[in-house]
């Protein structure tokens, strides 16, 4: 049986009276891709720094690959990509990777293939100063992949990247997760990460408010599906009355419904025949779900 990659139990951290991380618990299994979401200042980076052993926690326990955070045993098999890294501009891409390979005690022979894997083979002998933002981020990612770590922490790995670079990053993450590496990545937008993760953690003001798959979150949020029915001119009141809606807007009728009501409602609309010209169905978006979870807690607090 493979052991849990990361266990965080009831971890609390305060900075001069302000609670940055409040009683957070979760765990990561081998090969799992987990997104840690939260607004700026929600405690994501603080949590990462505690997992890395840079910050001491006030309460709770953290176990990294069966070791204490920050111990040599833990650091040997984990890797970290900070939110913003500025490598020395005068170094070449290959030299940066070779340096980190030496620090991690990994053979230099790994450097070449790794550069190829992140698509920097051709730029390997150019100075970092000439790299685009996406290339720098991929270089940072390559650093986090040296020596096949068992746990990888990525702090906002896709922020500021164009869609294609972002896609490359996701592909790489999927690839290493396929090889059994657990990946914990943070972001401040659900839309950036959700489709490519196994599980989503939402941190709001230091408290963990959700820990579920995207489908699970969708169900728990119970947000209504919105239907917009376009009618023939003048038919809106009749259509609204038939469908039991009070929201009319000239030539269209708005209806909110639950997932299980959607199909009956659609067939009812179909039965209206020539009165209806078109139907639009809006499932709740990722941002709606994210807002739902982070705002419920704010109201409760």
């Amino acid at each position: 049986m493979m052991r849990t990659s990361l266990t965080v139990r009831n971890v609390t951290k305060q900075f001069s009276g302000q609670t940055a991380v409040n009683d957070v618990s979760f765990s990561l299994e081998p090969g799992e891709r987990v997104a840690l979401l939260g607004h700026n200042g929600a405690g994501k980076t603080t949590l990462f720094k505690m997992i890395l052993g840079f910050l001491k926690r006030d309460r709770g326990e953290i176990e990294v690959l069966g070791d204490l955070p920050g111990s040599d045993g833990a650091r040997k098999h984990m890797a970290y990509l900070p939110e913003s890294v500025a490598f020395s501009n005068v170094l070449r891409g290959r030299e940066v990777l070779a340096f980190y390979a030496r620090l991690k005690g990994v053979a230099q022979a790994e450097v070449g293939p790794l550069l190829e894997r992140v698509g920097l083979a051709e730029a390997a002998n150019r100075r970092v100063a000439t790299y685009s933002k996406g290339m720098r981020q991929r270089l940072g990612l390559a650093q986090a992949l040296i020596g096949q770590p068992k746990l990888v922490l990525l702090d906002e790995p896709t922020s500021g990247l164009d869609p294609i670079s972002r896609q490359n990053v996701y592909d790489l993450i999927a690839e290493i997760a396929g090889q059994g590496t657990s990946v914990l990545m943070s972001s401040h937008a659900l839309t950036e990460l959700a489709p490519r993760t196994d599980r989503i953690l939402i941190l709001s003001k230091g408290t963990l408010v959700a820990d579920d798959s995207l489908t699970g979150l969708r169900a728990k949020a119970g947000l209504p599906i919105k239907l917009k029915v376009w009618t023939r001119p003048g038919a809106a009141p009749e259509v609204a009355a038939t469908l039991g809606s009070k929201q009319m807007n000239g030539r269209s009728v708005d209806i909110d419904c639950r997932l299980d009501e959607k199909i009956p409602l659609l067939s009812a609309i179909g039965a209206l025949g020539p009165l209806v010209e078109d139907v639009e169905v809006h499932a709740p978006g990722l941002d709606d779900i994210y807002r739902h979870f982070s705002e419920t807690v704010h109201k409760g607090a």
Binding site: L52, F54, D72, R75, K76, M78, A79, Y80, L81, P82, E83, S84, V85, A86, F87, S88, Y100, L103, K104, G105, G140, Q143
Partner: peptide, 13 residues
């Protein structure tokens, strides 16, 4: 400031 210390200290060093 450059963020490289975070990276370096996350290595077993």
């Amino acid at each position: 400031e450059r963020g490289t210390l975070l990276m370096t200290f996350s290595c077993p060093l």
